[in-house]
Amino acid sequence: MKKYFLQFKPFLIFIGTFFAAYIGFTLVYKFYLDSFDTTDVDGITAVVSHNVDWLLGLFNCDSKIFKSPLNPYFEVWYNAKFTLRIVEGCNAVSVTILFVSFVLAFSGKLKTTLGFILFGVFLIYVLNVIRIALLTVLLFRFPEQEHILHGVLFPLIIYGLVFSLWVFWVNKFSKYAK
């Protein structure tokens, strides 16, 4: 048994670190979400919504984003038409937790690891805001394509970025990089 433990030690350390970080960050996020009323929107989702509003305004889009009076989401109106909702799941925190957990599991030097995590979290956040703004415009123009746009294309973009960042990290900066 000891022979197998030694043989698979790097894998077991990776799995243990990944799951410990993932579970830890997820629990912290859950406690954060539990601090909000069920009809209120959490602060991170509110900031994302305001940044989407700012980005659409930067391009002179006729858009309005406001908190739903009865529900825990922001309504996005584009050209005076209700286009989409920004709910807690749209803030990309779960994707960010997944990203950070993986980088920590394949950590390298402390300064490099923390720098890459900050860079990756920022990039995920910015791409997510752009993603929601583009989704707003595309759903207004092509509402019949909601499934492909919201369910396939845009998750592919955000998860594709995370996967690309992981590959870059493992090959360039992790302790396993050649």
Rank of each mutant, 00 (worst) to 15 (best):
L153H: 09
F82W: 12
W77L: 01
V28L: 14
T112Q: 14
N128V: 05
D53H: 10
F102I: 12
V121W: 03
F140Y: 15
F140H: 10
T96E: 04
G89V: 13
F116L: 04
V162W: 01
F14I: 03
G24S: 09
A133Y: 01
G43P: 01
V95N: 14
G89F: 08
S107F: 15
K64E: 13
F168M: 13
D40W: 06
T17P: 09
T17V: 09
K3P: 00
L110K: 11
V52L: 00
P72E: 08
Y78P: 00
F102R: 07
M1Y: 11
L27D: 14
K175Q: 11
F163M: 06
S101M: 04
K172R: 09
F66K: 12
V95R: 00
C90I: 08
D62W: 05
F168D: 02
F106H: 05
V167D: 02
A133C: 05
S35K: 11
K9A: 09
L138N: 04
S107N: 13
L114N: 05
C90S: 06
K172D: 00
F8T: 11
R85G: 10
I15R: 11
S164R: 11
L161Q: 00
V87H: 11
I44K: 03
T39R: 00
V129G: 01
I117R: 02
L135D: 08
I44G: 04
E144M: 01
A105V: 02
I157F: 05
C61K: 14
V103H: 03
G43H: 07
F14G: 02
F173H: 04
L55P: 04
F99M: 03
L58Q: 05
G89D: 12
F154V: 09
R85I: 04
E144W: 01
V52D: 05
V87W: 02
Y125R: 03
K30E: 13
F82G: 02
N128P: 04
Y176K: 14
A20H: 07
Y125E: 03
V126F: 09
S174T: 09
K111L: 13
I158P: 09
G160C: 06
F140V: 06
N91W: 08
G43Q: 00
C90A: 04
F74K: 01
L6Y: 14
T39A: 00
L84T: 00
K9C: 01
F142R: 04
L139I: 07
G151R: 01
D42Y: 01
I13E: 15
E144D: 14
V152A: 15
L12Q: 04
L55V: 10
V126L: 09
A92R: 02
S174L: 04
M1Q: 11
N128E: 05
R131G: 03
I158D: 09
D40K: 14
